[in-house]
Write a protein that binds this DNA or RNA. Sequence first.
RNA 1: CGGGCUGUGGCGCAGUAGGUAGCGCGCUACCUUGGGGUGGUAGAGGUCGUGGGUUCGAAUCCCGCCAGUCCGACCA
Length: 476
Amino acid sequence: MQRLLKEITPRTEDYSQWYLDVINKADLMDYAPVRGFMVIKPYAYRVWELIQAYMDARFQETGHQNAYFPLLIPESLFKREAQHVEGFSPEVAWVTQGGSEELSERLAIRPTSETITGIMYAKWIQSYRDLPVLINQWCNVLRWEKATRPFVRPREFLWQEGHTVHRTEADAREETQRMLNIYVDTLRDVLAIPALSGEKSERERFAGAVETWALEALMGDGRALQAATSHFLGQNFARVFEIDFLDEDGERRLGWTTSWGASIRLIGALIMVHGDDRGLRLPPRVAPIQVVVVPIAAGPQREQVLDAARQAGAEIGEIGGLRVHVDDRQEYTPGWKFNDWEMRGVPVRVEIGPRDLAQGQVVLVRRDTGEKAVVPRNQLALRVRELLDDVQEGLYQQALSWRDSHTYTVSSVDEILAHDVRGFFKSGLCAESACEDRLQTATGATLRVLEAGEPEGACLVCGAPAVRRAVFARAY
RNA sequence: CGGGCUGUGGCGCAGUAGGUAGCGCGCUACCUUGGGGUGGUAGAGGUCGUGGGUUCGAAUCCCGCCAGUCCGACCA
């Protein structure tokens, strides 16, 4: 079949290097001068915009509005919620100087915005009629990470954070699940990633939350990546920021808040879930270029072939606004272009050459399987469309079967070790968080999520009766 | 934050008895070729990460710092 590209380290040889090679060959980002900061290059930024477009529409249709809150938060505000500060302090960066003058109070560069939205919501909310407040913001945040990694763990990252206030606990809990489900949909339907969702344990919970719900996706090396979170904050933030309102019955009550977020880390997930030894593989729904047309413009028929290619491109672009690109560069050979676009993950390639012209046909190649098909020229638009749907589905199915074949039900720590700690490990767990610690020490795996349902059997660490259904994995 | 490895044209690398920098790819021009990274000719391009130190002289030796990467700790 096709030989491997020498520029991309095979996944089995060195997964980390493979990840960096793919990012480089697909031209997704570049390192900035400060450690942990990166430039998101146009191709990757376009993927982010496509993800944004879907999520934003879902937020709007569920009644949310976008707004923008400031980057800097006064230390005194930031410190109000004790758990929150404790959790975030180690990774907060501070502004201490403005121009040549030292500030009288340090300003935190937001690692997340619960505090700033909290103080503002307290001002805005007077009556139950002001509720719910359903606001989202698309912004950057800063966390002074010690170990950084492109896309999955940069110090500055783009994300969206929703912050809502509700009249009742039930409303807030419902919101938490509603948004979690939108993330599930986004991963499944748009990114073609089957994720596993559930509640976080106390240890892994968002600082200041009552409950944290999360999506975990399984990467190609068997490690898990937290893809999105949705927090039920109870009245913790409402209490310290005095987010209260006069209810219908004349009683003053505290609001119930939620927050939820997903970041550009999703691009890291895309790379690691779908990428192969030839590079990136993008699901059509987030591919900046869904179809690339490569003319095989040889010899005397060059102009005819180029015209045919451009015409085919235009035709494809007309149907449903598909994102198509005709690569008519003269300076590269077709073979070079094939490799180039494959590394960049373009889902479908159309080849048109003299042979095809003569026989009234075109060649279609799908990126997920590499499969080639010769189709009649007059069916081009139709078949391309079908093929894009097939690739979207094909990538999902491949990711699903990878996840399912690497999800194990276990009843002992040794079984996890036997699988080299690669995959999702489901087991019963007792109530002691010490068992989580011991498991992590022994295997490096952490509790990713707690699943709903009746626990069975015994705690895989201590053997006590299980009270929770846990899913463990080594995490990024 | 601790430990290891790395830093020389855009990318990948060579370059230790210390003597003023080289190769491949890429890039530019022209020709050739074109169905899986064509071939040729001629060119352009480097304060050797950075700041000190040793030396007549440092890419090369010593120290600090910065950045990349791996392992560990930490990580809503």
